[in-house]
Amino acid sequence: MSASPSLHTGQASFSSALIKPDHPTPEDVIGPKPEKKAQKRFGVYRNNVIVSLTEAMMASFPTIAALVGEDYFRAMARVYITNHPPRTAILSRYGDQFASFLDGFEPVQAFPYMGDVARIEFAWQEAYHAADQSPLDPTSLQQIPPDRLAELTFTLHPACRLLASPYPAYSIWAAHKQDAPQETMASLPQEAEASLITRPQWDVMAIKLPAGGFAFLNALGEGLTLGQAAAVALEAAPAFDFARNLGGLLETGALAGLHLPSIDVKDQREPKPYQDNSANQHHES
């Protein structure tokens, strides 16, 4: 019997053999009897790692799997897992580099939008697990003196995620997600799209932002005032419609709080009570 490896050395060689199929079965690893080999036995661990992480990725990126087909997705996932194994035991956070992996993955270069579709899916995951917070009550804007509206700053909802794509990533995602209506597939737009993914209460939602919407919400997220953000958005997109954009943000619950130098309105950290308030939420003071 050769000298036994230290615990650290043993686990190091076990680890590298796990995700590298060309590495031999680690030295100290044996079958139950001298005449029994350990190759297929060790293979169980290799298989568990790849299969369980592939399942986790299928759960996080179902639209990418629908776009490329399950077999192709599994093959891509294996390459990703080998090159970017998880650094966390929280599997819902695994796949944070999958979008940039797809951007550079040679076999899918004919589908350059794929990375951005993956970004939407990962943002969806993040929104699903984000902190609970009540969205800003749309009527709270009515408490602000009209001549001070431009000075307002906002806090974005913790679930709010923004994505600008040079491709129609939102439309491609929407047409291929699980419950997508089939007829939208034929009529995909060809232009750049920006999208907002958030979770106002318990259901994640994604919308395509109107012209200038990304610049507007991005500026608000950076702490610019409403007036400054509108100017940024107008510069980015002359067709920017201020009323439509602000109304949309209030409606989707992408904003959580608003602030004036002397007045702070509703930036509560508590989730809404569990009763369904949809019937009366517009009457809250």
């Binding site: 615990l7 680890s15 568990n48 369980s52 035991a89």
Partner: peptide, 14 residues
């Protein structure tokens, strides 16, 4: 886990 990598499997101990 080993060297920051999480394998998502329960690996054996000598």
């Amino acid at each position: 886990s080993h060297d920051e990598v999480f394998f998502n499997d329960l690996l054996p101990v000598p």
